[in-house]
């Protein structure tokens, strides 16, 4: 995938061309013993850009996402992130404290299963407020106000603020997880199959909501999905993975309408048959 692809996509989305990428992934590789998780993956991600990572189950999508988001140490390769002050930081050279701070302020991570990303035994309000408290907010009224505001943005009624997510439906839990991540206004959000566990009708509503939030907030997103329809709806660009390697990359519309790699052609034709 080329820089001109990206600039074209950004122009389409009405975003002025930034000077420097937000994230730079270089030759990222993770092996599990002799098995390849992902191998030799490189790309840039620009501020406000949505990148989909697609491929069959077992193709290395989750491994790649976890290596980029510092949840899994890569075997080799680097990930550089442009901090808010403009400096580029190698995330694996940061101290653990700095990295964890980054993860709960400037980054978000939306898990496929909301149970992995929520505290099920504290209220929705505390789930959303946790990141604010973690960065030192000590005013109960302000924290609660922000929580209620974010619940509204993900279409959860104010009167659920004191309920535990245990009492929420799957779709609501996922929306709560999104609010919990967005409350610190991160610049980059990782998502692993965010609609994966949901009914089709619920999926559609969530995708719609996500699309709105991403464009309103100008979020950069890396979203892993095996569902090409999700990639089509959410992403500006995509990379296609097979057996841990990137076999095709480009603007989403181009890849889906005119796939070049035979494997991508197969993937696209199978989705079209559904």
């Amino acid at each position: 995938m080329t820089t001109s692809d990206t600039l074209e996509a950004l122009a389409k989305a009405g975003i002025p061309a930034p000077e420097k990428p937000l994230l730079t992934v270089e030759k990222l590789t993770r092996v599990y013993g002799k098995r390849i998780g992902c191998a030799d993956v490189s790309f840039d991600l620009w501020p406000g850009e949505v990148l989909a990572i697609v491929g069959e189950s077992g193709s290395g999508k989750t491994t790649l996402l976890n290596c980029i988001s510092s949840r899994l140490t890569p075997t080799c390769g680097t990930v550089h992130y442009r901090m808010r002050d403009g400096a580029s930081a190698d995330i694996y050279k940061m101290s653990e404290a700095e990295r964890r701070y980054l993860m709960r302020t400037d980054w978000g991570f939306v898990h496929q299963n909301p149970i992995d990303g929520l505290r099920m035994t504290v209220s929705a309000g505390a789930n959303v407020g946790e990141r604010l408290m973690a960065v030192g907010n000590r005013h109960y009224g302000n924290i609660r106000g922000a929580a209620i505001e974010w619940l509204a943005r993900v279409e959860i009624e104010e009167d659920r603020v004191d309920d535990q997510p245990r009492t929420f439906s799957g779709g609501m839990r996922q929306r709560l997880q999104i609010a919990r991540n967005l409350v610190t206004e991160p610049r980059l959000v990782f998502m692993d199959e965010p609609t994966g566990g949901l009914d089709v009708s619920v999926q559609a509503r969530l995708l719609d909501l996500l699309r709105g939030l991403v464009s309103d907030l100008g979020l950069a997103v890396i979203v892993v999905t095996h569902d090409l329809a999700v990639a089509r709806l959410l992403s500006d660009r995509m990379i296609v993975m097979k057996e841990g390697r990137v076999i095709e990359a480009g603007l989403t519309d181009r890849v889906l309408d005119d796939p070049r790699a035979p494997y991508t052609q197969l993937l696209v034709s199978s989705i079209l048959q559904v």
């Binding site: 964890r100 209220s123 990141r131 973690a134 000590r138 924290i143 609660r144």
Partner: peptide, 11 residues
């Protein structure tokens, strides 16, 4: 990382 303590008080 003591944000959790305040989560408890928030609750």
């Amino acid at each position: 990382e003591y944000g959790l303590m305040h989560v408890k008080l928030y609750e």
